[in-house]
Simulated assay, not measured.
Amino acid sequence: MMLWLAIPLTAALYLAVKKLARHYKSPLINTIMLPALLIIGVLVLTGQDSSAYQAGTKPLNLLLELAVVAFALPLYQQAAKIRQQLWPIVLCCSISVLISVGTTLLLGGILHAQPQLLASIATKSITTPLAMSVSATMGGIPAIAAGLVIIVGMMGAIIGFPVLKIAGVTHPEAQGLAMGASAHAIGTGAAAEVGPVQGAFASLAMVVCGIATALLAPPLFHLYLWLIG
């Protein structure tokens, strides 16, 4: 039954939460997190097999690939601004990756975490396919990497803009870069809902940080292994 109800259920929950979000401006009313939690609840309460739900939503997964490609549209619309600030943007995103991976390895060393676990955590701030691939090259567990990416993305979408507001970051381009660099595709989606400039710069940060992580994370991880002996 879940095979046939998967798409209607997913669409109904998404639209219901989206309508709710229009009336109540709360970061906790997230159109990704709440439907996901509700679907998990339905599967647990009804005892349905999650693989049936996954098979039923396969058409949506195919559309997801097109949706990711569609992030290129706001990039094209903001191309002039991006060209003017390209190198500062690349520098900021590279520093963001160094901070993300570096703090993960530092805390892991302090807590004496297993290298395999650290290799899975270090890629937490880039998109799922890249995170799984880069993590695997470092000896990590792709499934853990994918799960952490989703958690980080949801957290970024929920608390990202409130935290930026508290920190006094009001510039649209800076907001977009911060969301894309820290919360990848899910954060980029949240940024696009706030404004086209935020969405464009979040898309750019997501791409640049993905490339930078693929280039910087493995050598940093191997340096960490060498330092701890």
Rank of each mutant, 00 (worst) to 15 (best):
M1G: 15
M2E: 10
W4H: 15
L5E: 03
A6D: 02
P8A: 06
L9D: 00
T10Q: 02
L13I: 00
L13T: 01
L13E: 00
Y14D: 00
L15I: 11
V17T: 07
L20E: 10
L20M: 14
A21P: 14
A21M: 07
R22T: 15
H23A: 12
S26D: 08
I29V: 12
N30M: 04
N30D: 13
L34H: 04
L38H: 04
I40H: 06
V42W: 08
L43T: 05
L45P: 13
G47S: 01
G47T: 03
Q48N: 14
Q48K: 07
A52M: 10
T57M: 14
K58I: 13
P59G: 06
P59M: 08
N61K: 15
N61G: 15
L63V: 10
L64N: 05
A72H: 00
A72S: 12
L73D: 09
Y76R: 14
Y76E: 06
Q77H: 11
K81T: 10
K81V: 10
R83S: 14
Q84T: 13
Q84G: 15
W87K: 11
W87L: 15
V90Q: 01
L91R: 12
S94P: 02
S94I: 06
I95K: 00
S96C: 14
V97C: 06
L98K: 02
I99D: 03
S100R: 05
L106N: 04
G109K: 00
G109R: 00
I110W: 14
L111A: 14
A113C: 12
Q114W: 07
L118H: 11
L118Q: 11
A119W: 02
I121N: 09
A122I: 13
T123N: 07
K124R: 04
T127V: 11
T127K: 06
P129S: 02
M132A: 15
V134G: 09
T137G: 15
M138Q: 05
I141S: 12
A143M: 08
I151P: 11
V152W: 12
V152D: 05
G153N: 05
M155S: 12
I158L: 03
I159G: 10
G160Y: 04
F161M: 11
F161N: 06
P162Y: 02
V163R: 03
V163I: 15
L164F: 04
K165E: 15
V169G: 07
T170M: 07
T170N: 09
H171E: 12
H171G: 08
H171Q: 07
A174H: 05
Q175M: 15
G176C: 04
M179E: 01
M179F: 07
G180C: 06
A181H: 09
S182D: 05
A183R: 00
H184W: 04
A185K: 03
T188S: 06
T188G: 04
E193F: 09
V194L: 11
G195V: 06
V197K: 01
Q198M: 09
G199E: 04
F201N: 01
S203F: 03
L204A: 07
A205P: 02
A205F: 03
A205L: 05
M206D: 00
V207G: 03
V207S: 05
V208S: 07
G210K: 03
I211P: 08
I211S: 10
A212K: 02
A214N: 04
L215I: 14
L215S: 10
P219E: 02
H222F: 15
H222A: 14
H222L: 15
L223E: 11
L225Q: 13
W226D: 13
